[in-house]
Write a protein that binds this DNA or RNA. Structure first.
Lengths: 219, 219
DNA sequence: TAGAGTTTGTGAAAAATAGAACGAATATTA
DNA sequence: TAATATTCGTTCTATTTTTCACAAACTCTA
């Protein structure tokens, strides 16, 4: 379930997991908030106060990429923010392709939250003749047959798969063929991808059903 | 990041984590598919072939709740399916509360996927005077001030937080005060909850940003 | 019924992840 | 300047999770 395969080289140590990267993203968001509030310096203790991560974890996560803090002082909010943006690569805009304009896809394409993180859904695909050609927000829903062509032309590297389980693998294949390097997979299927492609799985059904389980047995 | 706090008693062993429960949900979905296809018996090897879990993990996960398989044979699809439905509690209807009627909240309340899991959004809350009193689908958007009262009265155990980050923790506090035991959290904040409450985080921005990181350095 | 071939369930080992402890670096105060 | 208080970065330790390995249970065939 957990993605133990996404192990890559960092600057100092041998490898770092995708869990660390996700936490970096979380830290980044909090730094942005702090910057807005005018905070200039922050300690690992303070910044993790509202996160579930410990201050040790924070320092350790950062240490994979270098020492950004000063003992006795903490971290400069602005410069750490820039460092994290660089590490994550979020200081540039990224275009995303969305495949699947069904219920979930619809919810996602209407969710403008992405733009806050420099992410922009620039095209939507489906295989259902009934929805192809219709508008989904600002975007025209395109035939999934044009996927490779469009994704190649727009040089899209990141895609979201929000199709039914059955279609997921073939869509995934098309996407990677077109040069996509990162896939956010909402289907419960485990996608087979060529080397160099990274898949992140979000399975809402699993999340919901696990909640039910816990809700059931507590009084 | 990972939820190590949600440890609960199982039938046989001392404790089992929420990761296990999520995998059970995954297994359940695949069993349903197999049942549809007319498959009567399945081995742990075969069922995990297309999942992100090993056959050992499958057997061990199940073993927390009992031995459902037969050596030399495998598992009866139909009966294991029933067992899992029972364990997870998905064979009954569950009412859920949605907090946050903004963009994401709006998309979620329109997302009919929930009903597939016997989940029904029965009330929507917001703190914005401009939307309170308006309709969101079939439901009237209520003032978040009435949250505790309503959730208590309706005996709601599961809630979705789709508020901005700033409001998430206080909403979470109110929800748990009112008796909610499971929270699906769409805000990037990691929520602090009392013992016995389970939080599932869906942070798409986080997932996407980690993808960017990996996509960035592959050519 | 005997023997070969599967497949389960689980204790033990390995790997991954998180947490504690502490020296070293910096700031502050008297 | 010296003493004290912070806070980082890292090593060492503990915990959790996953994988390995194998006995026991079962089927099937002759």
């Amino acid at each position: 379930m957990k993605n133990r395969t996404n192990i890559i080289l960092c600057s100092k140590k041998a490898k770092c997991s995708s869990e660390i990267i996700k936490r970096l993203s979380l830290y980044l968001r909090n730094l942005k908030r702090l910057e807005k509030e005018g905070v200039e310096t922050i300690s690992s203790d303070k910044i993790t106060q509202f996160l579930n991560a410990s201050s040790v974890q924070f320092r350790k996560d950062l240490s994979y990429f270098g020492g950004f803090g000063k003992p006795g002082v903490g971290y400069k909010v602005k410069s750490l923010l820039k460092e994290l943006e660089n590490i994550l690569g979020v200081n540039q805009e990224w275009d995303i392709a969305l495949v699947g304009a069904g219920r979930l896809g619809g919810a996602l394409s209407r969710f403008e939250g992405f733009s806050r993180f420099n992410l922009r859904i620039v095209c939507v695909f489906d295989n259902d003749k009934k929805v192809i050609g219709k508008k989904r927000g600002q975007l025209l829903i395109q035939d999934v047959k044009d996927l490779v062509k469009t994704v190649e032309r727009k040089k899209i590297r990141i895609a979201i798969i929000a199709t039914p389980m059955e279609a997921a693998q073939s869509v995934c294949h098309e996407l990677t063929k077109a040069g996509v390097k990162g896939i956010l997979n909402f289907s419960p299927l485990v996608l087979k991808v060529p080397n160099g492609v990274c898949v992140s799985n979000v399975d809402m059904a699993c999340e919901l059903e696990s909640l039910i389980y816990f809700a059931k047995r507590k009084r």
